[in-house]
């Protein structure tokens, strides 16, 4: 048996490839290699926009984070939320959180992943109902986004804590998306948010989105000016952690991303080398 056959047999054995990958992922995750990172332009621009938000700004933060995608989305939400809450007191910003459409634990994810990591807003001097609030979960698709956009009280009567939203001081002069100065969306439904909140009310949209294809989906809206700025996946999250000077989950997982990408490219290359070697061998045998 030639070396080609041995390598082919090894590589076509699923357990071997998957085992190798698991080992390669565990190493950087348990002991980060500290590979260097270049902060992307989108992340810098995103950070700058938040830094330059005017005092007294009303900020709507929509969380549409299905649990299955949290690995990509939460590492971005953590540093962005950190930047918002750490500046909110000084700038008198009002932060409104809401989850529309994606039911699986949006609200719980905010608690267990975001606040548990950076600390609750009260630790930054913010008071619930006056400086920040969680408007809870609203079921439904396009129509819920649309109705929330035009008349918040038509779909939200009570906040997540069970308070009537009319009893919250920060809700007194807010009843539509038009009343906010900027909108953040973490997760899915980017096209819906452009359609239902961005375009009709002309408010700047800041998107925290998935990597790969979703970024490509957002890019046309960005170029058309319908999306002010976006962050792209864990990579964007890692950039942001560096920008807010708070290293966390995203940076820790970047080494694993680098290694897994290289491993996959190596597999593809090796697969093709074997394919051409086999082809050549077959051609030789048929002569």
């Amino acid at each position: 048996m030639g070396i080609t056959d041995t390598v082919r047999k090894l590589l076509t054995r699923r357990t071997f490839v998957q085992g190798m990958l698991i080992i390669l992922l565990i190493i950087p995750l348990s002991r980060p290699l500290g590979l260097p990172i270049l902060i992307g332009e989108h992340s810098r621009a995103f950070y700058r926009i938040v830094e330059e938000l005017p005092p007294n700004a009303k900020i709507l933060f929509s969380q549409v984070t299905p649990v299955v995608l949290m690995g990509d989305l939460i590492p971005q939400a953590i540093p962005v939320t950190y930047q918002l809450v750490s500046l909110a007191k000084e700038r008198n910003w009002k932060l409104y959180f809401v989850g529309i459409g994606s039911p699986d634990g949006i609200l719980q994810l905010i608690d267990s992943e975001i606040w548990a990591t950076i600390g609750w807003p009260e630790e930054y001097g913010l008071k619930y109902g006056e400086d920040w609030c969680n408007l809870g979960f609203v079921a439904g698709g396009d129509i819920s986004w649309s109705t929330f956009g035009s008349d918040i009280r038509a779909v939200v009567q009570y906040d997540r804590e069970g308070n009537n939203i009319d009893s919250l001081p920060m809700m007194q002069d807010v009843n539509s998306v038009a009343d906010f100065d900027i909108i953040f969306n973490n997760g899915e439904y980017n096209t819906v948010i452009v359609r239902q909140w961005g375009e009709p009310y002309g408010k700047p949209l800041m998107l925290l989105c998935l990597t790969g294809a979703v970024v490509q989906d957002v890019e046309p809206f960005y170029r058309a000016g319908q999306v002010k700025e976006y962050l792209a996946g864990v990579r964007g999250g890692a950039d942001y952690e560096l920008l807010v000077n708070r290293p966390g989950k995203a940076i820790a997982s970047l080494d694993a991303i680098s290694i897994s990408h290289i491993f996959l490219i190596g597999l593809i290359a090796l697969g093709n080398v074997l394919y051409f070697a086999e082809k050549k061998e077959k051609g030789r045998n048929s002569l």
Partner: peptide, 15 residues
């Protein structure tokens, strides 16, 4: 529109 929107949200929750 607000009323219909509210109905739609209730229907979604019922779904």
């Amino acid at each position: 529109i607000s009323l219909l929107g509210n109905w739609a949200v209730v229907f979604s929750a019922m779904a």
